[in-house]
Design a protein around this nucleic acid. Structure first.
Length: 482
RNA sequence: GGCGGCGUACCCAAGUGGCUAAGGGAGCAGUCUGCAAAACUGCGAUUCGGCGGUUCAAUCCCGCCCGCCGCCUCCA
């Protein structure tokens, strides 16, 4: 039984999806995407990867997932950036939506089922705001519409704040026109040069939070299963979403609130304001490995920690992740090798481990998507495989092993490569051709037969300098690794 | 000030009221090997930030303290 940590209740709860139409278990999942005013950094990547894994695991569990991830394409920062660059706000938004798609493609994160943009849902937002006004939880002043926070008695239930505390700590400059400092804008009267839509309250643009209420309810229904995002969205964004949505419908909004922890650098949150961020683009460019390999290394790094915990990013951490993955791919390479000896299907222990593995993997993932534990299960299975690998595995057994790793690895986005792809070097131009390697290998074999160790070792070193590792097998043949 | 979280070996990181406190990376030693590499085996926290309390029993529950982080303003 899958359990999920629910920010709303503060507890780890059994997950029951709402829509169980017939035999198909349906899940509606909405995740707050990004505001498109700049390139994404690793923190955004973490969120994207975390919810991608959650989606994949739900699908693995045979849920039919409808995954919605939005773009905030109208916002102060976009407008500001457009002004600075002398472009239209819409161009800025478009630029970074493209960039986001590029980054996600590089990371191996497939698109959500629906990726709506806020500006496509203006009518829905206006409708929602009208309902709120009608219900007296919102009010109009000078073409602005505000949400009357005190009117919604569930306010603070997600972020565990009460309105008194909020007042005490309010550091925001108060808009004098609001009835209460806590009230937040649903609709902003537009200033000259800003994007504008017609509305019952005059020309204006939506506030930040209303879009997610409008889009999630339009695409997933008034009540849906999972709402996700980074921890920093809990307050005020998600708190306000609940206020707006439940204020309008009187029904529960999202049932499970899932929040991922931050990516830190030297124990501090990676963020724009601290300037300690690495864009996804930068990480790929600086990486010593080919793009696709880097993507998997990043995945491995990210899934090696439970999604709610902070994770510290460093070169060392990436290297460690690469080393961890290399160990798996070395095993895959050996599994691909033809078996020299025909007899010896020794592997009773292995068969037991193989049989037990899916349950262990699922137990880990069922426990609030404990990917770190799931990875460790795979590491242990790897050890069980390696223990008998030198003696050779029968073809069917070796294929079964590979299949098991690939299938479960895919849930985390791992082991997607053939060994050849994995070991490809970044600058393929300088690599020695396969034919040359064969030639050198043959020379070395001859030398070894003559017991000319000096010569054999020299060749091995030369190839090593070119990034090609030779491993002599007990039977006299040599394995080539890159 | 309010709210939330974290502190497990050199590094990363699971976890549990009592059974050897997983696993990985790095390191060291051994097996194997002409040597190496790989793989395997062994070693590595008498202890889970500190101090008290509850309990027959606590790293895990409670309290206090120390240290770190986050949110309360835009933020994945």
């Amino acid at each position: 039984m899958l359990k999920i940590s629910n920010t709303l209740t503060g507890k780890k709860e059994p997950f029951r999806s709402r829509g169980t139409a017939g035999k198909i278990k349906k899940v509606g999942m909405y995740v707050c995407g990004i505001t498109v005013y700049d390139r994404c950094h690793l923190g955004h990547a973490r969120s994207a990867v975390v919810f991608d894994v959650i989606r994949r695991y739900l699908e693995y569990k045979k849920y039919k997932v409808r995954y919605v991830k939005n773009f905030t394409d109208v916002d102060d920062k976009i407008i500001l950036r457009a002004h600075k660059e002398g472009r239209l706000w819409i161009e800025v938004a478009e630029t970074y939506i493209q960039a986001y798609h590029e980054d996600m493609a590089r990371l191996g994160v497939p698109p959500a089922d629906v990726e709506p943009r806020a500006t496509e849902y203006i009518p829905e937002m206006i409708g929602l705001i009208q309902t709120l006004i009608k219900k007296k939880v919102a009010y109009v002043i000078d073409g602005n519409v505000y949400y009357r926070v005190k009117q919604f008695n569930g306010y603070g239930k997600l972020s565990k704040r009460d309105t008194e505390d909020l007042l005490a700590g309010a550091r925001v400059e108060v808009d004098e026109r609001k009835e209460d400092p806590l009230d937040f804008a649903l609709w902003k009267a537009s200033k000259p040069g800003e994007p504008t839509w017609e509305s019952p309250w005059g020309p204006g643009r939506p506030g930040w939070h209303i879009e997610c209420s409008a889009m999630s309810m339009a695409l997933l229904g008034q009540t849906f299963d999972i709402h996700g995002g980074g921890k920093d969205l809990i307050f005020p964004h998600h708190e306000n979403e609940i206020a707006q949505s439940e204020g309008a419908t009187g029904k529960p909004f999202a049932r499970y609130w899932v929040h991922n922890g931050f990516v830190n650098v030297n124990q501090e949150k990676m963020s724009k304001s601290l300037g300690n961020f690495f864009t996804i683009q930068e990480i790929f460019e600086k990486s010593p490995w080919p793009e696709a390999v880097t993507a998997e290394v990043l995945r491995y790094f990210l899934v090696s920690t439970q999604y709610r915990s902070p994770i510290d990013f460093s070169d060392e951490a990436l290297k460690s992740a690469k080393a961890g993955l290399d160990n798996f791919y070395r095993m895959f390479q050996k599994l691909d090798e033809p078996v020299a000896t025909a007899s010896l299907p020794r592997g009773r222990k292995l068969r037991v481990a193989l049989k037990a593995f899916p349950k262990r993997f699922e137990a880990a993932m069922d426990d609030d998507f404990n990917t770190a534990l799931a990875v460790s299960e795979m590491q242990q299975l790897r050890a069980a495989v390696n223990a008998v690998l030198d003696q050779g595995l029968s073809r069917p057994l070796s294929q079964a092993v590979q299949k098991l790793f690939r299938k479960h690895g895919a849930v985390l986005g791992l082991f997607s490569f053939s060994i050849g792809q994995w070991t490809r070097t970044k600058e393929t131009g300088t690599a020695i051709s396969a034919a040359d390697v064969e030639q050198r290998l043959k020379e070395r074999d001859d030398a070894r037969h003559r017991k000319d160790w000096a010569r054999a070792d020299a060749i091995r070193e030369q190839l090593a300098d070119a990034g090609i590792i030779l491993e002599d097998r007990p039977d006299g043949t040599t394995r080539i690794r890159r």
